[in-house]
Design a protein around this nucleic acid. Sequence first.
RNA 1: GCUCCCAUCGUCUAGCGGUCCAGGACGUCGCCCUCUCAAGGCGAAAACACGAGUUCGAUUCUCGUUGGGAGCGCCA
Length: 466
Amino acid sequence: MPVRTRFAPSPTGYLHIGGARTALYCWLQARHDGGQFILRIEDTDRIRSTPEAVQAIIDGMAWLGLDCDEGPIFQTSRLARYEEVARGLLAAGKAYWAYETREEIEAMRAAAMARGAKPRYNGHYRELNAPLREDPNRVLRFKNPLGGTVAFDDAVKGRVEWQNEELDDLVLVRSDGYPTYNFAVVVDDVDMRITEVIRGDDHVNNTPRQINLYEALGAPLPRFAHLPMILGADGQKLSKRHGAVSVMQYREDGYLPEALLNYLVRLGWSHGDQEIFSRREMIDLFNISDVNRSAARFDVAKLNWLNQQYLKSTAPEVLAPEFSWHLRRAGINPAEGPAAEDVIVALRERVHTLRDLAERARVWYGPIAEWDDQAVTKYLRAEGADSILRRVQEALDALPHWTPAAIHEALARIAQELSVKPGQVAQPLRVAITGTAVSPAIEHTVFLAGRHEAAARIEAALDRIG
RNA sequence: GCUCCCAUCGUCUAGCGGUCCAGGACGUCGCCCUCUCAAGGCGAAAACACGAGUUCGAUUCUCGUUGGGAGCGCCA
């Protein structure tokens, strides 16, 4: 039987970090086993589902490169099928119509709570065989087994067991005719022959009811795997402030999908001491049964480190288009400065994200926006800085080839001839070119400015000294 | 309240009864390198929540305590 996994988000919001990791694990397991990965949109909540959210999920998956073999399949396109299965269950005496009002159910729950029991439906209509009739409160309920236990071996949590007494008769079909989540997932997972149900921890408690449904349907059980939560840096549930933002926000913040994926795969899973995994390695090495049982916190510092690792190891020409995208977002015209690849090479060891890289690149794409007064005082107005800069100006002007190597050589020669430390040449020049005391290696800083602009800036700096 | 789940350095984790006075990575700190900032190299501090068992021997197994989390919807 081929392995088939599915990622089944509800389109009530964007694809966030937790969902992305679930999707990744589902995708990895399918790819690892040479099976299929299915994207299913669980849109049976007609109030909260939105087309924008559907698009956001699809965009997020595409950006991460998690391609699916089937789908997206929308549950709302399968309504007739759920109805058919519901009828079958009803005919088999495994489901029944119930007509309590919401208030009545509320009262039942309150009463159960008062008794110190779980708040749940009391099964009033279970043996009444109430006929089908038009009623705004009519729902179809499942006849959950009354006794015994229901257990399963979770691929990550191990054996989990419940008493059937703990479970009540869940609603299968709502009063508006739409299936509920617990009903639709089971029907879909059975129809789509899903073999590994990989989902968030918050679904463990639904699993026993679903297993009972599988059994009522006479369907084989898939393997279940419940992933622990991803917590915020403060150990609290992820909120808007720390991570529960759309994965697309990570793109805007300058992260590479490979880095995010690599970070995510290590959150709850590991392979010895290895930290960096290519997609291929992830696929080869990953196995859902190796996933950790406990929740993990989201740590931006580590993501930053990983992102830089990828920035450093990815070919600049591969990074260039995305870098240019960030330049434009920062209001910088990529055409009005040096080649993207050169800027990337000069800066990538100094930043963690492409967004920072674009921001730091700004000096070479337009006039110096702001002078660092301290740097000007300390280096530009330093004793002898003006004469050194004039020497630099001449030497650069005389360079036959405008390359970092040639520039480096020229500057080194000046320092030697003047018997000054390299820094006494580099620092005033750095401030002249960038307006600050911080930039990549001086030969790159000068090179990126371009012959003409470098000369102009040195001249302007000289004027500034007075 | 009830049910279920979880528990190793600040964080992510290795460990699957002796190899552990607990290993790696991020972060932190120190040193080196150095034209700034980084990157890199070297080094340091830093953890088995607690209490009972089981065992010749527990970080590893069992139970309990404490602390976290999830669920208890005609939401998924």
